[in-house]
Write a protein that binds this DNA or RNA. Structure first.
Lengths: 233, 233
DNA sequence: GAACGCAAAATTGGCTCCAATTCAGCAGGT
DNA sequence: ACCTGCTGAATTGGAGCCAATTTTGCGTTC
């Protein structure tokens, strides 16, 4: 019998992978910082084998760079690396949106609208200045993009896109977003959903491209001003 | 698209990785075929450890798919998977060409022209009906694209692109190209090089996009007409 | 005769040990 | 004082072993 949800995939290697990835993305491993297999292994009470698999995986995903006999370290990204990555993502995700507008079934359209609604709800209800709040927002955002991808029926392209999405986050070290930026994102989500529903691929693609580039600008802006002001809420 | 550097990295895991990838891309492992670690290990006279690392790596690159406790198999791709992948590649590589046209230094331009010349030479001189000939052509083609990428100064995007390039090859099972198609490719290379040299990003991008889509069409055409083999075991 | 269930074989996931390589600190020579 | 070379510690890459899970084949039952 096939499980519908892969929730039970708690293999050791998978656990280490998720742990390390989160640690890196949320900035607890700084860029360039070395990752010692034995330390990670003992900190999670496992042997080195699953750790090595996770490290290799992160390496081919690009989050980590490792040299022969010399270990692994968090890949340091330059500002222009990140900007380029965002633009690549914009093109890929624009393409995905075109596909979605061409191929979406009624169920898909409903799922996309649901996800857009959910994102909006989360943005309004959650404290986006806290780490847990930010996590919830990112989750809702992922859900929207996942719904779109599913509608586009292009899983292979999505796999590629995933690494383009994750990598810049290393650089961000889990920065926060302003309420305005989030509401703008929500608006774009709605417009994209609308374009998909009315089967206008070109517009869906253009909106998504613009949405991602807005994200890039916000991201780079935040990078230039190291200070964060969660004064509200 | 392989990495051209790292010549001295002959670690066992790397050897297995290259071996397996070639076996898959050249079709000696059929789509969906199971990959048994112990068999690969003994066939290369090594332990399972490096084999496992290679398998994991190929898995995250998307060439193979593996399920918990149930092993790995060559990822089966549908015709539409391949078409989508090509289109994604077209957008990404179009972007790369734009970057190249914006950022290329004189050395880069020279390298791109050299690679285009070399490709042309190989296409004319080599027997493109043989497996070795095809390998030589693919190598020259890689060289052109690598030169372009280097000029664009966007290594991270290139890393992503690589998986979009390799994956469809699994499906091809190492098909052959007609002389006409190859000469058309060569022409596009030259036009792209020209656009880069004269700093016309938009045209460079458009040409590259078209070039890749031509490749897609040739690829899909070949897929539909089951090919005649060049009489070799 | 087909479906079910059980047991043996095959295979994977993980652990531990070992050799090879790199890194760090210290001593000695200039 | 500074550079060089050496030795010991830390770390990685690989091998072999074992437990857990899946697969396969056969016999039993309805």
């Amino acid at each position: 019998m096939a499980e519908l949800h892969e929730v039970s995939d708690v293999s050791g290697s998978e656990r280490v992978y998720r742990h390390l990835r989160r640690e890196i993305i949320e900035g607890r491993y700084g860029p360039g910082e070395r990752i010692v297999e034995s330390r990670v292994a003992s900190s999670l009470a496992m042997s080195r084998t699953p750790v090595r698999e996770a490290v290799r995986r992160l390496e081919t995903e690009g989050l980590i760079i490792s040299t022969h006999n010399r270990g692994a370290q968090v890949r340091p990204l330059t500002e222009s690396d990140v900007a380029d990555l965002y633009e690549a993502r914009a093109r890929l995700e624009g393409f995905m949106s075109e596909l979605a507008a061409q191929r979406a079934e009624p169920d898909d359209v409903a799922a996309i609208h649901d996800a857009a609604d959910e994102f909006d709800r989360v943005v309004e209800e959650v404290d986006h200045g806290s780490v847990e709040g930010l996590r919830a927002i990112l989750r809702a955002n992922d859900r929207f993009h996942a719904a779109l991808v599913r509608a586009g029926r292009a899983d292979q392209v999505f796999r590629i896109l995933a690494t383009a999405v994750d990598m810049p986050l290393v650089f961000t070290a889990f920065k926060l977003y302003s309420h305005d930026e989030l509401r703008r994102s929500s608006m774009f989500h709605r417009l994209i959903a609308e374009a998909v529903e009315t089967r206008q691929p070109e517009r869906a693609g253009r909106l998504m491209t613009e949405h991602v580039l807005q994200g890039r600008d916000a991201h780079m802006r935040r990078f230039r001003e190291p200070e964060v002001e969660p004064a509200s809420a």
